[in-house]
Amino acid sequence: MAPVEIGELVRELRKARGWSQGRLAAEINDAFGTALAREYVSGWERGKVRPGPFYLRALARVLDVPAAALAGGGPADGAAAAALAPAVASDLLSTGFAARLRGGPSAGEWEGRLTAYGTDYMSSPAADLQRRVAEDLVVVQQQLDDPRMWSVAARLMTVYATTFSRQECAKTVMWFRMAADAADRSGDTGVRVWVRGRGALTLGYGGTSTGLAELLADQALALTGKPSVGLLHATLGKAYAAALRGDRATALRLADRGRRIFDAAYDPSAQLSDYSIPSWRMNGFLSLLSARLGDEKQATEAREAALRELPERLPRFATHLELHKGLTLVRAGDREGGVACARAALEALPQDKWCGTLQMLMAEIAA
């Protein structure tokens, strides 16, 4: 599957803001003192001309996406096998061709693997999860002959997108976008909403690409109003983006909507998984949102409620909550104490359990 073209991404992000091509040109001109004409934006979007390095940086800034996500390139076939050590690349390629020649897992078997990944996400190291999902992506590439397999591929891509570090955020963006495209080919509305919602939540939570977070969230919200985990993810991702943008009223309105969706979709019997939202996780999401809004009382109450119910076997999530506390302190004016609190929490967690969103939060607090 080819990476999305720069022009398509620019057009989607521009439209998500309700901007005309002229408005996008004006935003760049105001920010950088240039004299960019609307016709140049049109040329970029139609693929007639490629923006140079300067305008790639300008577009990234005004559209709020990582510059690397606009710089071209993308994941190669076979999960970037050509960039791996030859022996590893050989194993991946042979696995993929064997699946095509002899048949791979059935749809039911894939659903079982996806269920396992949802559980493993909660505690497995990101590097281990990334390796395993990459192997499965190589196999499922050879089975994309019907909509069910596109549904499997879309969800695998989404899991894969969550495994990259802060330094690799452009890869996160690319994989979330490809996952959304794959989900569309499945024709399954629930999958289309979940994939986009999960992408919006990750990007909004990490604060690395709020422009794309809002785009994915808006797409999910336009697909259905039926309460679900995916719709909750999309609503919270959009709320995070609004908070980072300084739009307090919108963030609070979306938080209230998120609470209503949670109440309607909550399943107390659901197993511990990335596909479910227990009350402690919902409170964790709200603690970060309140911290970003500078509401110390609400942030503290939500964080403490989450800690009361958080399973002891999930230290990574406890670290998230400590980082929320650090951000709350920084927003309240105690920058030194907040940074020290967050850094101590992160350093106490074994590095193999670090994830991109933790690193992004630490960078936000330190900045």
Rank of each mutant, 00 (worst) to 15 (best):
Gly204Cys: 03
Val173Glu: 00
Thr163Ala: 09
Ser165Gly: 10
Leu231Trp: 11
Thr202Asn: 07
Gly206Cys: 12
Ala251Lys: 08
Arg257Leu: 01
Asp247Pro: 06
Ala265Met: 11
Ala241Val: 09
Thr235Asp: 09
Ala251Gly: 07
Arg177Glu: 08
Thr208Leu: 13
Gln219Val: 06
Ala170Glu: 03
Met174Asn: 04
Glu214Pro: 11
Asp181Asn: 02
Met149Val: 02
Ile277Ser: 02
Thr172Ser: 09
Lys238Asp: 11
Ala264Lys: 10
Lys226Thr: 15
Ala222His: 00
Leu231Arg: 15
Ala220Tyr: 00
Met149Ser: 13
Gln167Arg: 14
Cys169Phe: 05
Ala255Tyr: 01
Ile277Phe: 00
Asp218Tyr: 04
Ala264Leu: 13
Ala180Glu: 03
Tyr240Ser: 10
Trp175Met: 14
Ile277Met: 11
His233Glu: 08
Met149His: 13
Arg245Asp: 14
Leu272Met: 13
Asp218Leu: 09
Arg198Gln: 08
Lys226Trp: 00
Ala270Leu: 01
Ala182Met: 03
Ala265Val: 09
Tyr205Lys: 13
Leu216Trp: 03
Ala182Lys: 06
Thr158Gln: 05
Gly211Asn: 05
Trp175Pro: 15
Ala264Arg: 15
Met178Tyr: 01
Ala170Gly: 11
Val152Arg: 03
Asp146Tyr: 00
Asp146Lys: 12
Ala180Ile: 02
Gly225Gln: 06
Arg260Ser: 07
Asp256Asn: 11
Ala255Gln: 06
Leu252Gln: 08
Gln219Cys: 03
Leu223Pro: 03
Arg185Thr: 05
Leu231Ser: 14
Leu156Cys: 11
Ser269Asn: 13
Gly187Met: 00
Gly187Cys: 02
Thr189Ser: 08
Ala265Ile: 05
Arg166Thr: 03
Ala239Gly: 14
Pro227Met: 00
Ile277Asn: 01
Thr210His: 10
Val193Gln: 01
Gly207Asp: 06
Asp146Trp: 01
Ala255Phe: 00
Leu221Arg: 14
Ala183Pro: 00
Glu168Asn: 12
Tyr205Asn: 11
Gly187His: 05
Ala270Asn: 13
Val193Met: 02
Ala234Asp: 04
Leu232Tyr: 14
Gly246Leu: 05
Val159Glu: 02
Arg155Trp: 01
Asp181Glu: 07
Leu223Cys: 04
Leu156Met: 11
Leu216Pro: 10
Leu203Thr: 12
Lys226His: 13
Arg155His: 14
Lys226Arg: 13
Val173Pro: 03
Tyr160Phe: 15
Tyr205His: 14
Tyr160Thr: 10
Arg177Leu: 15
Ser273Trp: 05
Leu252Ser: 08
Ala161Thr: 07
Gln167Pro: 04
Trp175Tyr: 08
Gly187Phe: 01
Ala153Lys: 12
Ala153Tyr: 10
Asp256His: 06
Thr224Glu: 01
Arg245Lys: 12
Ser209Phe: 00
Ala220Ile: 03
Tyr266Cys: 13
His233Trp: 09
Ala249Ile: 05
Trp150Glu: 04
Leu203Gln: 09
